[in-house]
Simulated assay, not measured.
Amino acid sequence: MPENPLYEIHDPRFRALIVESAALEELHSGCRWAEGPVWFDDAQQLLWSDIPNQRMLRWTPDGHVSVYRYPSNFSNGHTRDRQGRLVSCEHGTRRVTRTEPDGTVTVLADSFEGKRLNSPNDVVVRSDGSIWFTDPTYGILSDYEGYKTAPELAARNVYRLDPASGELVAVVGDFLQPNGLAFSPDENKLYVADSGASHDETAPRHIRVFEVEQGGTLKNGRVFCHIDKGIPDGLRVDVDGNVWSSAADGVHCFAPDGTLIGKILVSQTVANLTFGGPRRNRLFITATQSLYSIYVTVSGASRP
């Protein structure tokens, strides 16, 4: 069988993760900047953000696409909490929110130490219920993905939120622009992208990894990998601990040791991705104007 031009295979380990005959399917187009995909297995739907158009979209397996929320407050990244509720990062309101079962929206965080957050970007929930999110300045740099204004905070932090007590803690504060984040399958590691090179060619374009201590503090941060095309934005981890990252030329897959083992090539710049479908082995990819999907042989790390 000839090589599938969709893939770059840098290491034999990548072959075990891909379906070499699989096609990259474009499920929808017409977005301005597609971001933040989140899969709902119980509802058999995928939600994602079209940030500049101020809307969240819904895709269902029958191919139907509809508007889930408008206006969306320039929402970006999304996840689900341990009860299955939608948790969202909103650039426009500079807050993290939760959508309740009846559709009402609860504000989880919008300030730190008396100052407004920058523009929460991406979010994950740990099995203990804590909510972790990044807070770069992308949503306040211009009026395209939010509202242009000066930041009130001196740093672009990664935060941990205890939803029971409401306590918000800055767990890392030395990123230029923290972006996508994900836990290892055992939740002992946290991966965080730094996409600072989006506005500074000399800035980092790497993913860092931290050890997560009991109590939720981080230690021993180090560079896990570098992105060789564009910048890392959203990322996900599969059940075997491989890290799948967005990049300018597609999706890059890194082994747990940080080795680039392969790429899925996409014609548009990839912003984010998530595993979904009944077996969580369908990779949904948001890339500039479009939503894509492709089947792989590995499942995403377990989430509600």
Rank of each mutant, 00 (worst) to 15 (best):
P2A: 13
P5W: 06
P5N: 10
Y7F: 15
I9Q: 05
I9M: 13
H10S: 08
H10R: 10
P12L: 06
A16P: 05
C31G: 12
C31A: 08
G36T: 05
W39V: 08
D42P: 00
Q44V: 09
D50T: 00
P52G: 10
P52M: 00
G63W: 14
S66Q: 12
P71N: 06
N73D: 13
N76A: 09
D81E: 12
G84R: 12
V87Q: 13
C89S: 15
C89T: 08
G92L: 08
R98W: 03
T99I: 07
E100Y: 08
G103P: 08
L108Y: 12
K115P: 07
L117E: 00
V124N: 14
V125G: 01
G129I: 04
G129L: 08
I140L: 08
I140Q: 03
T149V: 10
E152W: 06
P163A: 11
A164L: 13
S165G: 14
G180V: 05
P185T: 05
D186W: 14
L190S: 02
L190E: 05
Y191Q: 01
G196K: 04
A203V: 12
V212K: 02
G216D: 07
F224M: 04
D228L: 01
D233M: 01
V237I: 14
V237W: 07
D238T: 13
V243G: 07
V243P: 00
S245C: 15
S245P: 15
S246I: 11
A247N: 14
A255Y: 00
G258N: 06
L260C: 04
T269H: 13
V270T: 04
A271G: 11
L273I: 02
T274R: 03
T274M: 03
R279E: 13
R279W: 14
I285G: 04
A287I: 05
L291F: 01
L291G: 01
Y292A: 01
S293Q: 02
Y295F: 13
Y295D: 13
R303W: 15
P304W: 04
